[in-house]
């Protein structure tokens, strides 16, 4: 079944088409969300929300872009929204702690391990994921799509609705910022080999 046929069937409310949509795109949606939010439960929640939104708003899909591009945009938007909410909650928790209320303050970010990274590279990957949290969200999105989703710069440009030149620039800045963050980290924490 082609993407166009799938979209038409989804627009008709076909349940079998929805099942096929989830089967075909769950890894793509989940992996993208996971790269951004760095938490497996949150990524699972986001993946559910993405498919529910697609089911409810597929009639608004006009076919101006590829269906997968549209899906990527929804997944990225939801994941970034989730991150913002989390940050707001953290700030609110901090303000609450100033006024003596300690409920819901312990929003600790657990050490994230991406399940797809090879065992021998896990430690370095953890440090990279920590550094990723420190860079601007556009750079992080471009880096995640390219490195974790294996999208070419051209595809990243389509998903982010920008030019190839802009993506090259984003990736350049992302790498420079990550180098800076990692150097700062390793200057204080050189691991014992």
């Amino acid at each position: 079944m082609s993407q166009t046929e799938l979209v038409v069937q989804l627009q008709q409310g076909d349940e079998a088409a929805f099942k096929k949509l989830v089967d075909d795109y769950q890894v793509m949606v989940y992996n993208t969300a996971l790269g951004i939010v760095q938490n497996e439960d949150d990524a699972d929640d986001i993946a559910q929300e993405v498919f529910i939104q697609v089911f409810r708003s597929v009639s608004s899909f006009k076919g101006d872009s590829k269906f997968s591009t549209w899906l990527y945009r929804i997944a990225i938007g939801k994941a970034l929204d989730h991150e913002k909410k989390k940050k707001r909650k953290k700030r609110f928790g901090f303000v609450q702690s100033l006024f003596g209320s300690n409920e819901d303050v312990d929003i600790q970010v657990a050490e994230f391990e991406h399940p797809g990274v090879k065992m021998e590279k896990k430690e370095r990957a953890n440090e990279l994921f920590n550094a990723l949290k420190q860079i601007p969200e556009k750079q992080r999105t471009a880096f995640t799509l390219h490195k974790l989703e294996g999208q070419s710069y051209q595809q990243v440009a389509e998903i982010m609705n920008t030019t190839l030149y802009a993506v090259e620039s984003l990736m350049g800045r992302a790498k420079a910022n990550l180098r800076k963050e990692l150097k700062k980290y390793y200057s204080n924490n050189i691991p014992e080999q």
Binding site: V27, L34, A47, P115, V117, A125, K147, K183
Partner: peptide, 20 residues
Amino acid sequence: INKLVEEALGSLDDAQRAEP
């Protein structure tokens, strides 16, 4: 430090996609 930075930057190069 430079070696560690490069290792970290390349740590996702052959990563598999995570599955839900």
